Simulated assay, not measured.
Amino acid sequence: MDAVDVFIENRSCLDMDIYQLWLDGEIVEEICRLPFLTVQLDDTPSSKQILASYVADQVRTFHLLEKWLHSPAELADQPVFQLTDSCRTYLLEKYYTFDRQFMREILGRKFNKFRRKDFEDECRKTGVKLDSCYRQYENMRRVWKSVSAMDGCTMKNIHETFLLPDQLARDYSCVLFLSAYRMEMASVNLTKLPFDYFVSCAAEMMKGWTCTTQPSGPKGVSETLQANSEGASDLRIDKDFFYSMKEFRFLLERDAFESFRRAIGRNVPIQAALPGNPEIFRDSVRTMLTLALNVHHSKQFRLLFADITDKLLPAWKNAAWRNEDAVAFLNGFIISAEELNEFKSRDARLAGMWKRFFAVFNACVLRLFRTDEKPTVEFVIGQTS
């Protein structure tokens, strides 16, 4: 007669150590060999069998729970498992937590349907088990399908739909934003940068460049932003705003450009301190203006990070600029344009548009330029160091 293991419980008893191992992609046989489970066992066949049955029961329970983890709102109402509120919260947070190195590998990809074996390269590069890679990708894909069509703040929508903590919901929303526009992440200079750098940039873009950006500035700009923000999502770029950046094309005209460059030189005290700065200033100003004028093209926006790291930052690093130098230049860039007669004589909306675009752009530049994880200098509009 076949032996059957029977476990009878009232309130569900879940081993969270085994839960984490299951999430990591470990199988029952591998879990049973881990020292923290075997250290107190007698070295007898019966003890090993009891352990194997216990681990198998836990893993089986997690598989049964998984369908409700896919629909968090139903987890509290399901009648099969009696779970405390804190247990449900823990299960969901751990299930949707992702490995940042793995997520960096797939950042910017479109959320198509893939099979497990399609993640073998990422598994090999990151050391994350294949099943775990597949689960994390499917989680991201599930979140995308649920919230991509919703209006309003994506982080809030994820928090309310999947009951995730704010920080994790923010990370998900930033990944969705970068993937929605298939941002280029594979250039040589970008591959060196960690996941958190791009999350920081995406958060700035979602706050300042999307249709949900809060109204500010002159009346005309505020009315336009208010109209765009109604029924909009922060996963959608404000394309009208990007298109309007072409109005700054006059700054590339010879006289206006030279006036602008000289104004930056007056406002940035580091110009005389570093060798080669006149050339760096001229080339940097031209590059930043060109990127701003062309960002309305979908391809140029997709390549924005690559263009910043390939065309703008190498000269700064070759000149041994510090974070403080970059902050001074970027702040000087913003305030200097508004001093120009060519700028003052045009539409009053330009000042608000200029600040709105370059507040975000400069924050992204500074984030990608930094080599320290927690810099001591912050980017502040209108101040120079």
Rank of each mutant, 00 (worst) to 15 (best):
L75W: 02
V199P: 01
A73C: 05
E160P: 00
V380Y: 11
D77A: 12
C133F: 09
L75N: 07
S132Y: 05
C13K: 11
E279N: 10
A76D: 12
G108T: 07
R254T: 13
S345V: 07
S284R: 10
V295P: 04
R266F: 13
A328L: 03
P215G: 03
G208W: 14
S233V: 04
A52F: 12
W144Q: 12
L274R: 14
R286L: 14
D234G: 03
V199D: 01
A319C: 04
I308D: 07
G382H: 09
M1D: 06
S173Q: 02
F7T: 04
C123A: 10
F379H: 10
L37S: 02
S146I: 00
M288F: 03
M183Q: 05
Y243M: 07
L91D: 06
L293C: 06
S46H: 11
T97V: 01
L312T: 05
T89C: 10
P79K: 01
S229H: 04
G208F: 10
A203K: 09
Q300A: 12
G332S: 04
N323R: 07
K299W: 11
D151T: 13
S12L: 06
C13P: 00
T97R: 12
G265A: 14
A273G: 05
Q101T: 14
R124M: 03
D307H: 11
R116A: 13
G231S: 06
N341W: 01
N112K: 14
R266S: 09
G152Q: 10
I50Y: 11
R367K: 14
R236T: 12
V39Q: 13
L190K: 09
M16F: 15
F305C: 10
S46Q: 15
T61W: 00
W316H: 13
P165H: 08
W209R: 07
A351I: 11
A227G: 00
D17E: 08
R170E: 15
D85Q: 14
E324L: 11
G108P: 03
C123M: 08
M103Q: 11
W144A: 11
R322C: 06
A3G: 00
L313V: 15
L225G: 03
Q214D: 06
R141G: 05
I31C: 05
F369K: 02
F98M: 12
V6P: 00
L75A: 00
D15V: 06
I158F: 08
M150K: 14
S336N: 05
F358G: 01
R370Y: 04
M206Q: 15
P314K: 10
A359M: 12
V188I: 08
R236E: 13
F248K: 07
L107I: 02
F361P: 06
P375M: 09
I308W: 06
V4S: 01
D15E: 11
T61A: 09
K311V: 03
L164V: 04
D5F: 13
S298A: 15
R135P: 00
E230V: 13
L251P: 03
